Simulated assay, not measured.
Amino acid sequence: MDDLARFVESLLKQEESIIKYLDFKVLEVNKGFARIEIPYKKELCRRGGVIHGGVIMTAMDITGGIATFSVNDGIDQVTQELKVNFLEPMYKGPFTVEGKVIRKGKTTVIVEITFKDVEGKIGAIGLGTWYIIKDKSIEANKG
């Protein structure tokens, strides 16, 4: 794990409790690229011992968000769209998720994301759009 990946993982675990809960590890972050690892745990599985599709989408959303973060020239970002095609059931972990920025515009970033098992088999592929926030941050209504 490189220094940037260590920093991003630490920040995310402080800011986004789902990352800590799901035990995701940030392996690599470079400009326009991110790779994370997800363990195989029965708590993340659906019937039949395969990783739940919602967990796969969450991992892909997080990975695409990290890749976007690496090129974000604004102050925040949100997922605008995420389309995922599930190709194979995933049950051989740990799993690797890679996100690669394929286009950065003024307010949006497009990321291609793959979810693979320990043998390198692609279980899902996705395409996501992240909206870059330039002038205010997104916060939950705490009232």
Rank of each mutant, 00 (worst) to 15 (best):
G53I: 08
M60E: 00
F115P: 01
F69A: 13
M90H: 05
I62R: 02
T63R: 08
I56Q: 02
F24S: 00
D61F: 02
K13A: 11
T114K: 15
M57G: 10
D2V: 08
E98Y: 05
K104V: 10
K42F: 09
V118S: 10
E139K: 14
K92M: 11
F95D: 01
F115R: 02
K41N: 07
G54D: 06
A59E: 00
I133K: 15
S10T: 13
C45W: 04
D76Y: 06
K31D: 12
V55E: 02
H52V: 06
I56P: 01
L44W: 04
I75E: 05
A59I: 10
G143H: 07
E37Y: 06
E119Q: 11
V8E: 13
I110D: 14
I122G: 12
V8M: 13
V78W: 13
A140P: 04
R35Q: 13
G105E: 11
V101M: 08
V109F: 13
G65D: 07
A124V: 03
G143A: 11
G123E: 02
V97T: 11
I56A: 00
G99D: 11
L44E: 03
L11N: 13
V26F: 04
V118G: 00
C45G: 02
I110G: 04
G105W: 08
G48F: 07
D2H: 06
P39N: 08
I66S: 03
G99Q: 08
N30V: 05
I133L: 13
G93V: 01
D76Q: 08
L12I: 09
I36L: 09
E139R: 15
M90F: 03
Q14D: 10
R6A: 15
E119T: 12
S10H: 14
L82H: 07
R103P: 05
I75Y: 06
G49R: 12
Y40H: 14
V78R: 10
I132H: 03
K20C: 08
G99A: 15
E139P: 00
T114G: 10
S70K: 04
E9Y: 09
L22C: 07
G64I: 02
Y91L: 12
K20T: 12
S10G: 14
G74M: 00
K92T: 11
T114L: 14
D2N: 15
I102Q: 06
G105I: 09
I138Y: 15
L44P: 00
Y21L: 15
K104A: 14
V101P: 01
Y131N: 07
E43W: 05
A124C: 09
I56G: 01
I133R: 15
V109P: 01
V26D: 03
L87T: 04
C45V: 03
K104Y: 07
G128R: 00
K20D: 15
F86D: 02
M1R: 11
E112A: 10
E88T: 06
L87F: 07
I62Y: 03
E112D: 15
V84T: 15
T79R: 06
T79W: 10
T108R: 06
I132C: 04
G99K: 06
I18Q: 09
E43P: 01
L22N: 05
T58F: 08
P39A: 03
G120M: 12
R47Y: 14
F95V: 01
S17A: 12
Y91K: 10
E37V: 10
V26C: 09
V111D: 01
V109Q: 13
K106D: 09
K92V: 11
A34V: 02
I110Y: 09
M57T: 08
E139Q: 11
